[in-house]
Simulated assay, not measured.
Amino acid sequence: MIIASSRELVTQALERPEAKRCGIYLLLGEDQGGEVAYVGETEELATRIRTHLARKAWWSDVALITTKSEDLNKAHIKYLESRIHEMIKAAGRVRLDNVAPR
């Protein structure tokens, strides 16, 4: 399941029960250098996105990737984060704001 939101409406999206689960997220936006993306993973999407609201001013949109059930575990989300990061880097269309996941 993907929950997409603008920065302005993200607090409403974070109220959804699925946002309390683990998952992968993409922050999307622009800065002086052009289009930027940040790929991350977390044990609880809502908490992590609230941190990024306070610390990363450049992003305008977010996509939260999780499940309605609790089928994803830490190994799944680390793998998915790594693959998404690799695909964005290979496409070369946006600058990544984070280093490659371990």
Rank of each mutant, 00 (worst) to 15 (best):
M1I: 10
M1V: 07
I2N: 10
I3D: 02
I3Y: 00
A4D: 07
S5L: 06
S6C: 04
R7P: 01
E8T: 14
V10L: 09
V10T: 11
T11C: 14
Q12R: 11
A13D: 02
L14V: 02
L14P: 00
E15R: 12
P17H: 05
P17Q: 06
E18K: 15
K20W: 10
K20N: 12
R21T: 11
G23I: 04
L26H: 06
L26S: 05
L27S: 08
L28T: 03
G29M: 08
Q32R: 15
G33V: 15
G34W: 00
Y38Q: 00
Y38G: 01
E41I: 13
E43K: 09
E44D: 15
E44C: 09
L45K: 01
T47L: 13
R48E: 03
I49L: 15
I49W: 01
R50E: 10
R50A: 02
R50V: 07
R50S: 07
T51A: 10
T51K: 15
L53G: 06
A54D: 07
K56N: 10
W58G: 14
W58P: 10
W59R: 10
S60W: 05
V62C: 10
A63R: 07
A63L: 15
L64F: 00
L64N: 00
I65L: 12
T66N: 06
S69R: 12
S69V: 12
S69Q: 08
S69L: 13
S69Y: 06
E70P: 11
L72S: 02
L72M: 09
L72N: 04
N73A: 03
K74T: 11
K74D: 07
A75S: 15
H76Y: 04
I77S: 00
I77P: 03
Y79I: 10
Y79W: 11
L80Q: 08
E81V: 03
R83P: 04
R83Q: 05
H85I: 02
E86L: 14
M87V: 07
I88M: 14
K89T: 01
A90C: 03
A90Q: 05
R93P: 07
L96K: 01
L96H: 04
D97Y: 09
D97R: 09
D97G: 13
N98E: 14
N98W: 06
V99A: 10
V99M: 11
A100P: 13
P101W: 02
R102H: 13
R102C: 12
